[in-house]
């Protein structure tokens, strides 16, 4: 088990190294002079020269790469060219919105998907199954920004339960902050919940046909006990895979929802940085997101082994 974790950690480090090299290469080396690109076509020569010096473009790419990586390891992400503030501060500020939003959405999605998937699987072929799966089909098909606008219309404009957008900050109190994230989290969670429920159902249906489920019933377990004690954990492997993918997506892919609700999250930060050609910010935020995805995958790998003892014997 320890060896398994060690090899996974090693592979995590290799992935991070490769990813950082690729991001660095794509942004700094390939499209010509980054300073000229950042300043646009009307830039003065001396402004470009000043930016080149600031970016350290006179030194070799290898030196810059190691400077960038060692900076990130120590928490120094550089300074944003547009805002003239340290990028680490900007990211921290945005992360305080994006991370809770992703976690709430993921929790919601899982809380909805598990019971729905289990219900549909245990009543497979029945009317309940058909209806529930029909709704998840709808959930997958409806674009989440449209659903988000619908919710703003109903809950913010008509009922006035929530504000239509913006984030007051956590200083206003936990409740106020959570309230501002409720509608965005629901709109993010619903399509994810639909996908997860369908995966849960099909994984569980496969497990219910296994011979050991018959053994469980023959021991004297009733249907519910047999599903709880024997089927659920066996159905977890595909479900864990999807949960891992969804977390990465929710963290980075919330740009549209952040825009609909006017939330200053990471997605919007990347979007703004790209439109302002602030390559220093883009590079760092993308690296951070890649880091998150790789760490989540690592966590999922560890979860597989905790769930399935058969995976433990390999290296």
């Amino acid at each position: 088990m320890a060896r398994y974790i060690l090899t996974r950690l090693l592979s995590l480090l290799i992935s991070l190294t490769v990813a950082s090299a690729v991001i660095f290469a794509l942004i700094e080396i390939i499209p010509g002079d980054p300073a000229a690109f950042m300043l646009g076509i009307n830039a003065q020569d001396d402004t470009i020269a000043a930016l080149r010096a600031e970016l350290g473009l006179d030194t070799s790419p290898l030196e810059r790469y190691f400077g960038w990586v060692s900076g990130m390891v120590t928490g120094d992400f550089g300074t944003s060219y547009t805002y003239r503030t340290p990028i680490s501060e900007m990211i921290a500020e945005r992360l305080w919105i994006s991370l809770p939003l992703a976690l709430i959405a993921l929790a919601l999605s899982t809380l909805i998907a598990f019971p729905v998937g289990i219900l549909a699987a245990s009543k497979r072929g029945s009317l309940t199954d058909t209806i529930v799966m029909g709704f998840t089909q709808l959930g997958v098909a409806i674009p989440n920004f449209w659903f988000a606008m619908l919710m703003v219309l109903v809950f913010a404009i008509n009922l006035r339960w929530f504000s239509a957008g913006g984030f007051p900050g956590w200083d206003e109190g936990l409740f106020t902050g959570l309230k501002a994230l409720t509608l965005p989290a629901i709109s993010l969670a619903l399509p994810q919940a639909s996908i997860l429920a369908r995966v849960m159902r099909s994984a569980l249906v496969d497990t219910l046909d296994e011979d050991f489920m018959r053994t469980a019933r023959a021991k004297g377990l009733n249907r519910r006990q047999a599903i709880q004690r024997h089927a659920l954990r066996n159905a977890m492997i595909p479900v864990l895979t999807i949960i891992g993918l969804q977390f990465s997506f929710l963290l980075a892919g919330a740009i549209i929802i952040e825009n609909v609700f006017f939330l200053p999250g990471l997605g919007r930060l990347v979007f703004q940085a790209i439109s302002q050609r602030d390559l220093i910010v883009v590079e760092s935020v993308v690296m951070l997101l890649v880091f998150a995805v790789i760490v989540v995958n690592f966590a999922v790998d560890i979860a597989y082994v905790l769930v399935d003892p058969r995976l433990r014997r390999q290296g």
Binding site: D211, F212, R214, T215, A216, H230, V307, P309, R310
Partner: peptide
Amino acid sequence: IVFQEPATALNPL
């Protein structure tokens, strides 16, 4: 009852 296929009759987890 004891079933035919011991390979699958037990919960692998």
